[in-house]
Nucleic acid binder design. Structure first.
Lengths: 241, 241
DNA sequence: CGCCCTCTTGAATTAAGTCAAATAATGTGG
DNA sequence: CCACATTATTTGACTTAATTCAAGAGGGCG
């Protein structure tokens, strides 16, 4: 497995240097495979807050791995109404739902300055033919997305407002933790209204809940900055209801 | 493309005979490929109403293609509460969310006598390595499932009860139509309470809506038998709101 | 500095839930 | 095949969680 001699400034692929690679792509890939993958990936210069990565309806050409920052993906109803689907963090993949139908079915917009890797999909597919581990990884990532959506539907359609917000906070906490950041203290890059939208609630409700959580000593919230104080009680909120 | 001579009772693979194959698996596969796929698929004897195809937590070994009947998939909350995720019809695939984590994350139970094909997943994965079209098809099916979940979240978290039920009826209508059945007249294999559960509503609400839709001349409902009368107005219900 | 947009807070409204009960199916054992 | 038990569906009355409307308070940016 570990056939690496310490060859410092060698031709290490960018993927290998990238701290998030365990999340987004490679996993147990051999060095050679990683290099191949690396070769098809295009890096972009940073994307500014508010810039779109892609929009619903555009031709599907690539999936994206978020390297830094955060991105919101959303559907646009024909009435023009937006529905926020999820918030992506570094290591997450974007655009997978575009595979079927060869057009993106949702839009992705940066919530802050972010950077992404473009992974041209047809090339990725070819590579999957040669690298079984890569194919498996893609399947796993898609499977995980399906799992997450199932979970999200359960939360949004079964739990009261309080539990939904608690769930979002805890989920974010867990995801930050996975990425090596604090699980109890973080900054929200999304607005209250994005959160409300995703949870199918009114902004006012979210705002009230934030103050309520704070009054109850569950969290400390200063604008975007959130500190989880009583994780146990937050967790209980989600379970109960 | 069409290199078939009329060789009646030949060695045609079961997949080729199966009327639903355009939905579940093959698509543009060559005859040879189809045969290979066919070889790994196991057919089961029919599954009785109420029998489980798999349960959440069990080791993930196979995905399933529904051949006839209908199946409900649901999550079980730790409190024991069930959350219905979706209803599967012939041609649909089940179990895809189990790929990640190698355990089924939801349960699938037959709503009526049904038959399925078991597709051992590791064999399928191997086959995907050899048949690019098959790999692509699996990716498409998973992508579609993600799309559908996105859509479902939008419906359940944004639309009022009336529109949610209209959406379910229309979606089912479309799916029956795709499968060659009437788009305007069909039998629901699921209970009112399954529908309510999936939509995040109370059974009573669903019941009231059925009678309401009937009073409004939108549908005719006799127990499980549903007849869509005014599709245009139903559609408008979903859009508006 | 001031405008704009996000967020917060309060009061009134309402959609949907809960509780309770009747009715209609479905199934079971004798 | 019938009587009974059980479950699914419907309907009504009341309650409530969350929305909507209205308005004020902050913050951030040009």
């Amino acid at each position: 497995m570990d056939n690496t001699v310490i060859d410092l400034a060698s031709v290490r692929s960018i993927c290998q240097q990238c701290g998030i690679n365990k999340l987004c792509m490679p996993m147990g890939l051999e060095r050679n495979d990683l290099d191949q993958l690396d070769r098809i990936i295009k890096r972009r210069r940073p994307i500014a807050k508010g810039e779109h990565l892609y929009r619903g309806g555009e031709a599907f050409t690539a999936i994206y791995a978020l390297r830094s920052g955060s991105v919101k993906s959303y559907l646009t109803h024909e009435s023009g109404m937006e529905h926020v689907i999820c918030f992506k963090l570094p290591g997450d993949l974007l655009g997978l739902s575009g595979i079927n139908g060869s057009h993106y079915t949702n839009s992705a917009v940066a919530l802050e300055t972010s950077s992404v890797c473009d992974i041209p999909f047809n090339q990725l597919e070819h590579l999957c033919q040669e690298i079984p581990g890569l194919q498996h990884h893609i399947l796993e990532m898609m499977s995980k997305e399906i799992q997450e959506e199932h979970e999200k539907i359960a939360v949004c359609s079964k739990l009261p407002a309080e539990a939904r917000l608690a769930s979002v906070l805890l989920t974010l906490s867990g995801r930050f933790h996975q990425r090596g950041y604090s699980a109890t203290e973080f900054n929200l890059s999304m607005s209250r209204s994005d959160i409300a939208n995703m949870l199918g609630l009114a902004v006012e409700t979210i705002s009230r809940l934030f103050t309520h959580f704070q009054d109850e000593g569950l969290i400390e919230a200063d604008r975007k900055h959130i500190k989880l104080i009583d994780v146990a009680r937050l967790t209980a909120l989600v379970k109960l209801a």
